[in-house]
Simulated assay, not measured.
Amino acid sequence: MQEENKSHQPAAIVLLSGGLDSITVLALARRQGYACYALSFDYGQRHNAELAAAQAIAEQYGVIEHKVLQLGLNSFGGSALTDANIAVPTVAQTGIPVTYVPARNTIFLACALGWAEVVQARDVFIGVNAVDFSGYPDCRPEFIQAFQDMANLATKAGVEGRKIQIHTPLISLSKAEIIRQGLALGVDYALTVSCYSADPQGWACGKCDACRLRAEGFRQLGVADPTRYVAA
């Protein structure tokens, strides 16, 4: 059953992966006074440790409701994150890497848009980043703007003048800047899982692109990285 937002706070949908960026976005949305609905996806990714992390984060931040949608993008494959036959690379790649999941953010945002209409939220938050990222095309400002335009053409809310805003507060920040902002908000990054190949307990490989970007962000700040890494 849909829980009612009984406060006078504006409602927002926050995409919550369980990683470093998404917890920062949730903390920012809360600080800005939004009543948050957290949305996560079991899309057939290599591990569910990030979903366990998302659940713990949602509970800590007292979101109104946390939904985990089953999508099964592994039925398509085509990505190292959804196809066990494609290895997660442990060295930097040029171009769009094999960890790109085809159309993932388009699908995620479309689902968020649907829930936003149901709970009458006019704001959707997503932690995409176009600075320290892996070259994914659906993390760019051009994509977000295009989706924003589509959202207000495709929805009852948009047509009736209640336009929905896609918020990307991290899009122009480096990983170190994101971490600095999160720490200022009191974020506990030990709750998060960023690794593409984390084990069931959330221990990180320390070698994939996500691990490298995260570790470098903490290193640049001179702050201890709370990530739990498997033994080398």
Rank of each mutant, 00 (worst) to 15 (best):
Q148N: 11
S134Q: 12
K163T: 13
F133H: 15
G161D: 05
R162N: 15
I126C: 11
K156T: 14
S134V: 12
K156R: 15
Y136W: 04
D132G: 07
T155S: 12
G127Y: 07
D138Y: 12
I144M: 14
G158R: 06
N152V: 12
D132I: 05
V131G: 07
T155C: 06
F147W: 12
N129H: 08
R140P: 06
D149L: 14
V128E: 02
A157E: 03
R162V: 02
I144H: 02
A157S: 15
G158C: 10
I166T: 00
I144D: 00
N152L: 10
Y136N: 11
H167L: 00
T155H: 07
I166M: 05
Q145F: 04
N129K: 11
I144F: 02
Q165A: 13
T155V: 06
C139A: 14
L153T: 14
H167D: 03
G161I: 09
G158Y: 02
R140Q: 06
R162W: 10
V131A: 03
G161F: 06
V159S: 05
Q148C: 01
E160P: 01
V131T: 10
K163P: 06
V159D: 11
Q145I: 13
P137E: 09
H167S: 09
D138G: 01
G135M: 11
H167W: 08
T155P: 02
I166D: 01
E160D: 12
K163D: 10
S134N: 12
G158N: 04
V128W: 03
E142W: 00
A130S: 13
K163I: 06
T155Y: 04
K163Y: 08
P141S: 06
I166L: 07
E142R: 09
I164V: 11
N129Y: 06
I166E: 01
L153N: 13
A157F: 08
G135W: 07
I166G: 03
H167G: 03
D132C: 10
Y136Q: 08
V159K: 14
A157N: 09
V131R: 03
R162A: 12
I126A: 10
S134A: 14
F147V: 13
K163S: 10
G127F: 09
I126F: 04
G135A: 12
A130D: 14
Q148V: 10
Y136T: 09
A146N: 13
G158F: 05
Q148R: 11
I166A: 03
Q165G: 07
S134C: 08
E142S: 13
G161E: 01
C139Y: 07
P137K: 09
D149Q: 15
N129G: 01
S134G: 13
V131L: 04
I126R: 03
T155Q: 00
P137I: 11
Y136K: 10
G127P: 11
A151C: 12
G158W: 08
D149I: 15
E160R: 14
H167T: 01
V131Y: 00
V128N: 05
